[in-house]
């Protein structure tokens, strides 16, 4: 596990396999509040990175830097090896898609199909190609039956699926999802979780996940970054991060359920915490 000290001193350029490289970036909002502070962050090819932190820790601000919606006041952001500034940010959306926390903010078009075609049409595709891309994306998330519906009449879960399809249709290299399972019923949360895994496995897309649902992060993330007060204070594999109770408490988080169960079992048996399971399958194997 890399702790904060190592990361903030790591002023360097992106390596070839890094899709996103944020080097000590800070962002101060016009009202003086700090969004991110000397934050270092990397996303490699074909991985799921979970940004975990309490409300207001700076996760969403960080996501907006990935897409060029915000530029850092200090430090550098590199996407696909290119440094992002006012001139290069305008094409950033082609490589990095963002699924926003509130689907209602994202779905604005008269019908689902129109909304999903919006991105591909902006990419310069003709209507036929945009239609193909939209249908493919809607099929990938299992939302093809909603094509003619008005977004207002979809359920929260259906809106989330359509939001993901709207980004997937643009075929980005990286998709950032802001609290993808918040406000969803368990069934739709499970569907979204499967889709996120499929985006990585089937489409080779790297995923950045901002969430305070550590159970979700434990199940699907390859790497976890703990965000506190606008900085990444630790990063590592889920099995490393989620067994550091002091770290999680410091970040205003609580360990995932599986970790709680395993630790309770170890305590009950008087055994040491050794295997560090973070998923149900790991837990079953460890027992």
């Amino acid at each position: 596990m890399k702790k904060h000290i190592d990361l903030v001193q790591n002023h360097d350029s992106p390596e070839p396999h890094e899709l996103i490289h944020i080097d000590c970036a800070s962002h101060v909002y016009p009202d003086g509040s700090i969004g991110i502070h000397e934050l270092c962050f990397k996303v490699k090819e074909n991985e799921i990175v979970a940004l975990c932190g309490a409300n207001g820790s700076g996760k969403s601000t960080l996501l907006e830097h990935l897409n060029g919606l915000l530029l850092p006041s200090k430090g550098n952001v590199y996407v696909m090896g290119e440094k992002i500034d006012t001139t290069t940010k305008k094409d950033l959306w082609k490589n990095v898609g963002i699924v926003f926390q509130k689907s209602d903010d994202q779905l604005f078009a008269p019908t689902v199909l129109d909304d999903v075609m919006f991105g591909p049409l902006n990419l310069g595709m003709n209507k036929g190609d945009a239609w193909d891309a939209a249908m493919k994306a809607l099929r990938a998330v299992g939302a093809e039956e909603f094509i003619n519906k008005i977004p207002n009449y979809l359920s929260g879960g259906q809106k989330r699926l359509v939001s993901i399809a709207g980004i997937l249709a643009m075929k980005p290299k990286i998709i950032a999802l802001d609290e993808p399972t918040s406000d969803l019923d368990p069934k739709h949360a499970e569907i979204v979780e499967k889709i996120i895994c499929e985006l990585k496995e089937g489409h080779g897309i790297s995923i950045v996940l901002a969430t305070h649902d550590l159970d979700l992060a434990a199940r699907i993330a390859d790497r976890v970054c703990i965000v506190k007060e606008g900085s990444v204070i630790a990063e590592g594999r889920p099995s490393e991060i989620f067994y550091d109770i002091d770290l999680l408490e410091d970040a205003g988080l609580k360990e995932p359920k599986i970790v709680q169960v395993y630790e309770a079992l170890c305590e009950f048996r008087g055994a040491d915490v050794k295997k560090r399971p973070v998923t149900i399958e790991d837990l079953v194997r460890s027992l």
Binding site: E64, N67, L69, W93, K94, G97, I98, F100, K102, D104, D105, Q106, F108, A109, P110, T111, L113, D114, M117, F118, G119, L121, N122, L123, K127, A130, W131, G166, I167, M170
Partner: peptide, 22 residues
Amino acid sequence: QAERVNKAMESRGYDGTYSAST
């Protein structure tokens, strides 16, 4: 809400012109 919608549209390449595709 308008600010957030605009932000979401910009993140998908909106440059001030939206065309109906139906």
